[in-house]
Amino acid sequence: MNVNLTLVGELIAFVVFVLFCMKFVWPPIIAAIEDRQKVIADGLAASERAAKDLELAQDNAKAQLKEAKAQAAEIVDAAKKREAQVIEEAAVKAQAERDKIIASGHTEIESERNRAKEELRKQVAVLAIAGAEKILERSIDAAAHGDILDKLVAEL
């Protein structure tokens, strides 16, 4: 129980242990801990940054998608408009063509009719003469009765 030389011995042991701990034990362990803490902190920061980047990229992609959709809708609209326009143009053109064809048909019919009329008149004149000849049993001088014939043709 008494204090004796052991005190000095223990004091020396204490000093030696503390010095050993200070030189060879504490620095490597605390360095390992702090390095690891730094590595973990860096990793966490990096993952956070990556998450932020991802979010940004997702936002970006969303915006781009939206824009693309809008553009697509615009293009479809324009295409529809153009389609309608083309159809209308085509219709107008077709109408015009039709009208032209009908008109030309009409004129052709008209001219055909006129020609037929003319033909008919001539044939009627010939027939009338032939009929008249038969009735009269004699020939009529076409030159002498030309005026009568012309009058007849004109009446047809």
Binding site: V3, T6, L7, L11, A13
Partner: peptide
């Protein structure tokens, strides 16, 4: 060892 006054006094004196 810590039931010996020499030990505890060595530490505290240090």
């Amino acid at each position: 060892p810590t039931t010996d006054l020499n030990m505890t006094f060595a530490l505290s004196l240090g």
